[in-house]
Design a protein around this nucleic acid. Structure first.
Length: 732
DNA sequence: GTTGGAATTCTCTAGACAGCATGTC
DNA sequence: CTAGAGAATTCCAAC
């Protein structure tokens, strides 16, 4: 089926076909053609469950273009990751911008100036962001959407985030019954069940644009499921290095999936030692540039940065969430550019951005679970890793390889992964934390106003499709009691109404439990001003804050530390003997709070890495969440009129945001000035905005990390400020 | 004593969404 | 209760 014919048949302008032709798309893939035949362009709902890279997105794109260009419709494209959102946003804008289609993006870290759909035809957003938008302007947004795309719907299976996806889908549909829903999924075994729920057609297929050979390595050879075999004879002893080298020698690349960050690092180093030798001079030079960029991604290179740099110079890299996101991006780009030959990654890469490779090696197909020990990873996850194999246009076929250590294991791996059916997706909505949040939101937005209304609302979710709605009646009842008791809602006869507290908690997008913790914490601030540690601990006590891993040897010291600071905590410290488990949690909270404190004391990232066992990426992520919670605490303090708490919370929020001591707060209000440059300026004697106003651009340029551009920019800013008000802000 | 390597014991374990108001290094 | 990789530590032989 040709794109051109599809366009003319469905009244799409010929320019659409031209635009797609430019991206190399003229002929539709079989699953895409199937979707057209089943009526995606006639407004049919559709579930598309096909492998990665089999062209799911284009199906949705055609449907969106039809809606936008012909019916003046508005579309939202919902993804599970920010990185995916920006990838889609760039892609859509680049491809369809010239058709006059206005594309916007809205995620927590990157928001269009006005994410209202009025300005855009297609809005790309994360599911939580869409949920949040619905909470702020419920009806209006849902009203105007004509096409909603749920990318990676199999995320419904995720206990933490799946419920959000169900809820927002149910809300969008109820608000606009004519809404066209397109659900895109990896191959799963119950796509039909989801289709049934959405009243949709199903397209399932195993078809791939680049054929995939799946096999298991054992004793010097890979046995593929099609019966073929490939001997690995590189002369290298280490199996992993041999498998990588084998494909690199023939001009391919390899992605290697391991289960821990540590493994990814050691594997990248080990393989690098073998790859290094076959790099050309040109490649070495370019790799060195990449390595330098990675090392300079954040101020002074830390130990991890240097290790990563060393790997990159050998043509390999490790990739995990401990890295700073820019570093990850550099690595991904260099791999796409065929420069980096091998990436050793944790599962980050399996579900992340598009990054194909000729060979995908799954070394660790087990993962540790604190409850259950080592467990096989889900087939679905293996499929996503394997699906990365095969670069369109470059490789004749892709190879996905598991590594067996014995003959028995060889057979077992074929059974457990290669021939196995992917799991069934099940709703995780019936969990208390998930329902707590969404029930409050439903009441706060007036979407449901009674017990029956709530059940009715839950009745439209995937959960109700898989179970009886009544199965959650008990939990719903308990949650209503809880919300009532904590004064987030009030009962007026049968009617349920949100209090201002409940409403604010719902809009802040925090867990109701977090709202309670923050409220009680700040109410405990007595006459004496709270300490940094006390506030940071409250933040970490909240279920929204992820906690750092508590090492065995750290406990004693933390316990001592807790005792020394026992006066500062704003909650009752649990008794280690009465409730050891709770006490463990407390220590983990304390460790996390200490880490944030180190961050705002401007402790070297390298030192934080050493002491707390986390990388730059982890620090930023924790700081980001903490900042959001500090803002929330501040808002609640306003609501409850706890004046004493306002200023400390405001200051701390800014400090956590930038990772700075209080003395830099003023400098950091300048755009372009953050943790590093702020400290450099301060050290050079520029401690206040007034100092900068007195300095010349030439003088400022002498400060480290400040060049012509930045110097001019901050000069401009301070002068402007002067003109505007005659004095500058003292406030934070 | 020192050194280098093997053997043994010990330790630790993936990922990443959200507010708000504008810009990190 | 579960498992395996990698780091840390101990052990031991050869000098």
């Amino acid at each position: 089926m040709r794109v051109e014919d599809v366009c003319s048949k469905h009244n799409l302008p010929a320019s659409v076909a031209e635009v797609l032709k430019k991206s190399g798309i003229e002929e539709l893939y079989p699953p895409q053609a199937e979707a057209i035949r089943r009526g995606v362009l006639n407004g049919k709902n559709m579930v598309v469950a096909i492998p990665t890279a089999a062209g799911k997105s284009l199906i949705a794109e055609l449907a969106m273009l039809k809606s936008v260009l012909i019916d003046r419709g508005k579309c939202i494209y919902i993804v599970p990751l920010r990185a995916l959102a920006s990838e889609k946003y760039e892609d859509f804008r680049q491809k369809y911008g010239e058709l006059g289609v206005r594309v916007g993006i809205s995620t927590g870290d990157f928001d269009a100036p006005d994410p209202s759909l009025a300005r855009y035809d297609i809005l790309v957003a994360t599911s939580e962001k869409v949920d949040s938008l619905l909470r702020h302007r419920a009806k209006w947004l849902a009203d105007i959407v004509t096409v909603a795309v749920l990318d990676e719907v199999h995320l419904i299976n995720d206990p933490g985030r799946g419920p959000t996806l169900e809820i927002l889908t149910a809300r969008l549909r109820r608000e606009n019954p004519k809404l066209q829903i397109l659900a895109l999924s990896a191959t799963i075994s119950n796509a039909d069940e989801i289709a049934d729920w959405l009243n949709a057609e199903v397209v399932t297929s195993d078809w791939r644009p680049v054929p995939l050979k799946e096999g298991v390595y054992h004793r010097g050879a890979v046995r593929f499921s099609d019966g073929s075999e490939r001997k690995i004879k590189t002369g290298v002893k280490d199996v992993l290095a041999a498998l990588a080298l084998d494909t690199v020698q023939e001009g391919g690349q390899a992605l290697i999936f391991v289960s821990t960050r540590r493994s990814s690092q050691t594997a990248a180093e080990l393989i690098g030692a073998h790859i290094q030798g076959i790099l050309t001079h040109q490649e070495r030079r370019e790799l060195d540039e990449v390595a330098q960029r990675v090392e300079r991604a954040l101020g002074e290179p830390t130990r991890i940065c240097k290790r990563l740099g060393a790997c990159i110079r050998m043509g390999t890299a490790f990739h995990h969430a401990g890295l700073y996101h820019l570093q990850r991006k550099f690595i991904e780009d260099a791999f796409r550019g065929h420069l980096i030959k091998v990436i050793c990654a944790t599962p980050t890469l399996a579900a992340g951005v598009n990054l194909p490779s000729r060979r995908a090696i799954v070394r660790d197909y087990r993962r540790y679970d604190p409850m259950l020990g080592q467990q096989f990873i889900p087939v679905l996850e293996f499929r996503q890793m394997a699906g990365r194999a095969g670069r369109p246009k470059y490789d004749k076929y892709g190879e996905a390889i598991l590594i067996a250590k014995s003959k028995d294991e060889l057979e077992a791996l074929f059974e457990a992964f290669i021939f196995a059916k992917p799991e069934r997706i099940t709703s995780k909505l019936a969990s208390e934390p998930a329902l707590r949040t969404h029930i409050l939101a439903a009441i706060a937005t007036g979407y449901a106003r009674s017990f029956d209304g709530l059940l009715d609302f839950i009745g439209q979710t995937f959960f109700a499709h898989q179970h009886e709605t009544r199965a959650v009646a008990g939990i719903v009842d308990r949650i209503i009691d809880y919300l009532d008791r904590e004064e987030m809602i009030r009962r007026q006869g049968e009617l349920l109404v949100a209090t201002p507290f409940g409403e604010r908690v719902s809009q802040l997008y925090i867990d109701p439990e977090s709202g309670v913790v923050l409220r009680d914490g700040i109410k405990n601030i007595s006459a004496a001003p709270p300490t940094e540690l006390g506030i940071l601990h409250i933040i970490c006590h909240t279920p929204d804050m992820g906690l750092l891993y508590l090492g065995r040897r750290e406990k004693e010291e933390l316990e001592r530390f807790a005792l020394e600071h026992i006066e500062e905590f704003l909650v009752k410290v649990p008794d280690p003997y009465e409730d050891p488990e709770k006490f463990e949690f407390f220590l983990a909270e304390l460790k996390t709070a200490k880490m944030l404190q180190a961050w705002i004391e401007e402790v070297d990232e390298d030192e934080i890495h050493e002491e707390f066992g986390i990388g730059a990426g982890d620090i930023r992520r924790a700081a980001e969440v903490a900042e959001w919670l500090l803002y929330s605490a501040h808002e609640l303090a306003k609501l409850f009129k706890i004046r004493r708490a306002l200023s400390p919370l405001r200051k701390l929020r800014q400090r956590v945001r930038y990772g700075i001591k209080e003395e830099l707060l003023e400098l950091v209000t300048l755009s372009g000035i953050g943790r590093v440059r702020g400290r450099d300026l301060y050290r050079a004697g520029y401690r206040r905005i007034a100092d900068i106003r007195r300095a010349s651009v030439e003088e400022l340029k002498r400060v480290p990390h400040i060049g012509e551009e930045i110097a001019r920019s901050i000069k401009r800013q301070v002068e402007q400020e002067f003109e505007e008000s005659g004095e500058y802000r003292n406030r934070v």
